[in-house]
Write a protein that binds this DNA or RNA. Structure first.
Lengths: 344, 344
DNA sequence: TTGAAAGCGTTACCAT
DNA sequence: ATGGTAACGCTTTCAA
């Protein structure tokens, strides 16, 4: 059985002071004489005392716990993002209670769990909160921030920080256009989230503006999905020589599909991915892709959340940061408008 | 400011019962009449009441929180493992307080944090606890389980569950031997952990037994490290035609190094990885690798931990499970002993 | 079956 | 600067 840890009362007895004084010693910026402070420290050290965060949280109504909900993503930048959040929050004295969901909307239950533990704030990564959940949450005035997923249907009281995927899609489209291609296509992810739509929308916008047709194929976010979608495109009527994939993994699948048809990259087909994951830089792929500015995004997310927790923010904050194109070798060099593929 | 959530007293007032009764309704298996139970439920529903886990944890000395410490690993099976732990623990009603470390030994501070929140148990993934930390922890009788990392210097009171890497290394060595190669090499990871050593030891053992020499090169766990280590090997005096890499990522690097020397895989060089990560199955690599039985390992870890928490275990448990070789196309087919590469 | 009251380990207020 | 005491929201014992 788990043993009880030593409490402030025992430290007080050993140090020959009151329990209140022990508490004060462990509360930052409270007046205690240097002498007693040392006595208490020594006693605490000797007994291995550390204040009980649960009791503290109970009385202070602040737990220093942040509830983090992340979507079940095998493909994405999960480790990177998670690590950075944990580190960043930790540096500010906060701890992370972690939950994850596989749905497009957070399980209401997860949020209730967080509420039971009286978390100081909630970060939702790559997924959404249902209106029900939001309504319930709004009663408690607990800061919520959505990271990299957004919904328009919100009169809501949460913050949003994410990548400007519309701009990203546009940039990618314009880059492919500038490099000169004949037929443009886009392989979309499986998520019905706002963010991926934005990305696709930006991409299409570039061509729509100029009256150029683009083919859209649905991948499902996986390698296989990308492979198959690319196959459909490349074996179709007007095979593209420029494909933008909404995720790196799909892009790798698309690249391998092209190669299996004896098309070289980037000579016959240019491919652009999204996310700049580890795999993108692998030698046989050397994928041109889009890097989201996670460092800044996460720093802003944490700052915003803590500012809200500490009452320094009144109204919802909404921040979009643009990423940057990482140019590798999967897009053909400029001005090479000829020599493109017109038949299978 | 965060608002106070509704408490049991308010529910009691609305339902016209005592606060104790409300508590009983939310404590499983406590005798309450059907009629009052319904009244309380209705009142609770109406007010949106959920018991405060902190207060409950304080009085019960059980928080239903598990502290999880994971090493900062970009390459490994981080997402998979983490997801499975969270899901598995969640299914048993436990929550995860997450910390991570980049060191070979867990930061003592992390453990103290867990203690402050009075976690019911601690899972340490892929790293170790210092003797100091262990000494401190042992005072509290709090269940600890080490996952996939182990130290021999332990008189200790923690459990251990992991992959039998020695057996894995042996299996891999024997497989490469069976397929017939001339010169065997091993690229090791950067960690000075027990587990990777075991793996390497098993591999070497196979050849030592038979008086066959093996070359050992240190990678650092990264793609680049694998690439460079393979380069050193392949450009060296007696270049290997069979290379075992202690991680998939290094194996990919090694594969690309071989290709850059115009060596094909597996005709000129066989390569075996470790972990069966997503990248291993990528088309251009189709890497033969080792899959650790994470599902079972994690299930056992959780079961052991919860058994200990509930007092069903008296002495430390130590469990090793063997993985399985995933045969793809990076190792040459059997009995093809000739045609191996003897010079650069 | 239910209610009153003690206690979990803190912090915060009011004295001194 | 320090000590006494109420309060945080819950579970649990003891009475009724």
């Amino acid at each position: 059985m788990k043993k009880k840890v030593v409490n402030a009362m025992e430290v007080a007895r050993l140090a020959g002071v009151s329990q209140s004084t022990v508490s004060r010693v462990f509360s930052p910026s409270t007046a205690v004489s240097e002498k007693t402070r040392h006595r208490v420290w020594k006693a605490a050290e000797e007994l291995g005392y550390r204040p009980n965060a649960l009791a503290r949280g109970l009385i202070m109504n602040k737990t220093k716990i942040i509830g983090l909900i992340i979507r079940d993503i095998q493909n994405l930048c999960y480790p990177e993002i998670l690590d950075k959040f944990i580190k960043g929050l930790r540096a500010k004295g906060y701890h992370v209670l972690l939950a994850h969901t596989e749905n497009n909307e957070v399980n209401q239950d997860e949020v209730y769990q967080f509420l039971e533990y009286n978390v100081d704030g909630i970060i939702v990564i790559d997924t959404l909160l249902s209106l029900n959940t939001l309504a319930h949450l709004s009663k408690y005035n607990i800061p919520i921030i959505l990271f990299n997923q957004y919904t328009e249907a919100s009169s809501c009281s949460y913050h949003f920080v994410g990548c400007d995927n519309y701009a990203a899609g546009k940039d990618i489209g314009e880059y492919l256009l500038k490099q000169g291609h004949h037929q443009y296509a886009c392989i979309t992810g499986h998520r019905n989230g706002f963010m991926s739509h934005e990305c696709e929308k930006g991409f299409r916008q570039v061509f729509q503006q100029r009256g150029i047709k683009t083919a859209i194929e649905a991948g499902d976010g996986t390698y296989e999905g990308g492979y198959k979608a690319a196959m459909r495109l490349l074996k179709g009527g007007s095979p593209p020589d420029a494909i933008f994939c909404a995720s790196d993994l799909m892009a790798l699948g698309a690249a391998d599909a092209a190669r299996s048809l004896n098309l070289s990259i980037p000579e016959h087909v240019s491919i652009v991915g999204f996310n700049d994951s580890v795999m993108a830089s692998l030698h046989p792929y050397s994928l041109t892709t889009w890097r989201q500015p996670f460092d800044e995004l996460i720093a802003i997310t944490i700052k915003t959340l803590l500012d809200d927790i500490d009452g320094r923010i009144k109204s919802p904050v909404s921040i979009l940061l643009c990423g940057v194109l990482i140019k590798r070798d999967s897009v053909r060099a400029s001005h090479n408008t000829d020599g493109a593929l017109n038949s299978e």
